[in-house]
Amino acid sequence: MSSLAEHTGLDLREVERFLYREARLADEHDYDGWEALWTDDALYWVPAGSPDADPQRLMSVIYDNRSRIRTRISQLKTGKRYAQSPPSNMRRLISNIEVVAVEGADTVVGANFLLIESRERGTTMWAGRTTYRLRRVEDDIRLAYKKVVLVDSAEALSTLAFLI
């Protein structure tokens, strides 16, 4: 692990702090704060069916580049994105954090999550494993890639209009 830290300057504690912050911004619908985490070459992906499904050829639940992330956030901010207006109440736990690889300037991190979402429809439990690609940009850490593989990605899903 120390050799990874040498390459990227990201140690596990920094990684954790970033993941927890990202989770909190999403849970609390801090849309501007969450959007500001992303790099310009961002990719935000929630596969459907198989986690290995080719997103260029097959349907995904979410497959957003930076411009579509902006659209998604702008829509949420109108207050008339009814699937999130009123917004879900939710909290997620992030655990089993592992630094998977270092690729150039990026640190690839895997982590499990468990999220409880409460809204008038009912309480929904979401869980899965997320792969993050974190990049140090000057004094900051930014998010270049987030792939969320839901444990129930092969099943019918309820509306998922919050930031997962």
């Binding site: 639940v61 659209t71 998604r72 009814y82 509306t159 209009a161």
Partner: peptide
């Protein structure tokens, strides 16, 4: 077609999630 469809429909779709809410 795929890209527009993915953006619009399904659980997180920018159109269909709101229909479903209704």
């Amino acid at each position: 077609l795929l890209s527009q469809c993915v953006g619009s429909v399904g659980p997180a779709g920018m159109l269909l999630a709101d229909d479903s809410e209704m």
